[in-house]
Amino acid sequence: MEHHLVLRVVSKLIIPPILLFGLYVQFHGDHGAGGGFQAGVIIAVAFILYGLVFGIPRLLRVLPWRFIRASMAAGVLLYAGTGAASMLMGADYLDYAPFGATPVEGQHLGILLVELGVGITVASVMLAIFIAFAARLPSQIKDEEW
């Protein structure tokens, strides 16, 4: 696909808005439809698109493999860690109330954090899965590269 100039230009134009939309969905889930999962999928799709058009090796230069793998775990740990923080603050696991001055404030922060955790994990896992499939295709990338 390296030769499809139109495709590459269009992609470059379209990917930033997709990412932006993803972030919007991530942080606007409180009010409208959407949340961490949907945002994660959208952000993953943006990078998948990038990978499809520019090739996996280039995608891996943008997002190193170590980074993707670490984010997979980091998202989960952020979620689970939020819960652990509530425990350390004397509440039950995943009780966000102690995070803020008022319980409602705490809920806001807590939900923000866990949704972020979901988003990070979903985006990185989806991307990792895509790369894993794509890398299996002949003439894509070599094992050592990731």
């Binding site: 689970a80 652990a84 039950d92």
Partner: peptide
């Protein structure tokens, strides 16, 4: 205090730690 949830949490959080 947190015994019931810790039982599950320990291996649950160890799994991503393994990956890292």
């Amino acid at each position: 205090k947190h015994l019931p949830v810790l039982v599950v949490l320990v291996p649950l959080m160890a799994a991503p730690a393994c990956l890292i």
